[in-house]
Amino acid sequence: MPAPTALVRRPEELAEAVSVPLPDQNIDDELLLDAPTSETNTLQPIAGDADTEMHIDEEGRPRFAPAKASDGPLRIESRKVPIPPHRMSPLKASWPKIYPPLVEHLKLQVRMNVKNRAVELRSSKFTTDSGALQKGEDFVKAFSLGFDVDDAIALLRLDDLYIETFEIKDVKTLQGEHLGRAIGRIAGKDGKTKFAIENASRTRVVLADSKIHILGGFKNIHIAREAIVSLILGSPPGKVYGNLRTVASRMKERF
């Protein structure tokens, strides 16, 4: 049997065989995207409106044009604040003092729905503040809880005021005469203890049966709540007065 002979090709055939791609080779792999040769360190502004144009300062930080003031809210929203039955008569009596801040200051549309026992608020095209509707709702809700109109108006003018509500049973489970005595310790004779807590902590306190509402700043609410909790747990008013006197002197030193 003759020995196998080696296959000999000419140099031209070898060159053609090398240049032909294999059957399972992906031709797309041969497509390469060349990176841009010029490197730029500065960002180019995007063509468009003048308020969206971006410029680069000397340190390479982007600088944008100031935003334009919006003409009004993006959409008209409405809120409904329910009023308890026992606060409807005070609402009707104080209505001439309630709606002017909402209409003139916050630029809201407001009406009192007597049938549904609610105050309805709605933003309009004249409303400029995005949080006006929430401020108006907090103002009306504060009045519905029992605060005076003058105290509730502070929610419209100051941003760091809050309302905290808790019940006596959240502190200690009391029933019957024990609950009545706890409420009496908080109020005091002719409201003396309640007024002392308000003046020392610079807050406003409303006693609505077993519920207690406190209006004021965050730290001030904490001071008033600690005093009320001490009275609920049975501390004598004299000891609470002493603690309030100490806290009031510390607050004066801070200011």
Rank of each mutant, 00 (worst) to 15 (best):
R87I: 01
F64H: 11
K92G: 03
P45T: 02
H105E: 15
K92H: 09
L74S: 08
K107W: 01
P101K: 02
E77L: 15
H55C: 01
L43M: 05
V114F: 12
N116S: 11
A47V: 03
I98Y: 07
P100L: 08
H55W: 07
M112P: 00
F64A: 08
R79G: 05
P62M: 11
N41D: 14
A93E: 15
R63N: 07
F64Q: 07
N116K: 10
P73Y: 08
V119H: 02
S94T: 00
A67P: 00
N116Q: 15
D51V: 05
R87F: 06
S89M: 08
P100S: 09
P84R: 01
R79D: 14
A118P: 00
E53L: 11
E104Q: 12
A65D: 07
D71I: 04
K80A: 15
A47W: 03
M88Y: 05
L102E: 09
T40M: 05
Q44S: 11
H86G: 02
N116D: 15
W95T: 01
R111H: 12
G48L: 06
P45A: 14
I76Q: 09
K115G: 06
P82A: 13
K115I: 06
W95I: 02
E104P: 00
K68I: 14
R117T: 04
P62G: 06
V114S: 15
A67H: 09
E53G: 00
M54V: 13
V81H: 03
D51F: 14
R75W: 06
P84Y: 11
P73N: 10
P85F: 15
R75F: 10
Y99E: 08
T40L: 12
P45M: 07
I83H: 02
K107N: 10
R61C: 03
V110Y: 03
L91T: 14
R79H: 10
P73H: 06
G60S: 07
V103G: 01
D49T: 09
P73C: 12
R87G: 03
A93F: 15
N41A: 10
K68Y: 11
T42S: 10
L106A: 10
A69N: 04
A50K: 01
Q44P: 00
L108W: 04
H86T: 00
K107G: 01
V114C: 02
L74G: 12
R87N: 04
P90C: 08
M88D: 04
M112G: 00
R79P: 00
D71G: 14
I76L: 14
A65K: 02
T42M: 05
L74R: 01
S78E: 15
G72E: 06
P90D: 12
A67N: 03
P96N: 08
K107R: 07
A69Q: 13
E104Y: 08
E53W: 05
E59N: 12
T52S: 10
R79M: 14
E120N: 05
M112C: 10
E77N: 06
M88C: 11
V119W: 06
I76D: 08
P85L: 13
S89A: 15
V114Q: 14
P66R: 05
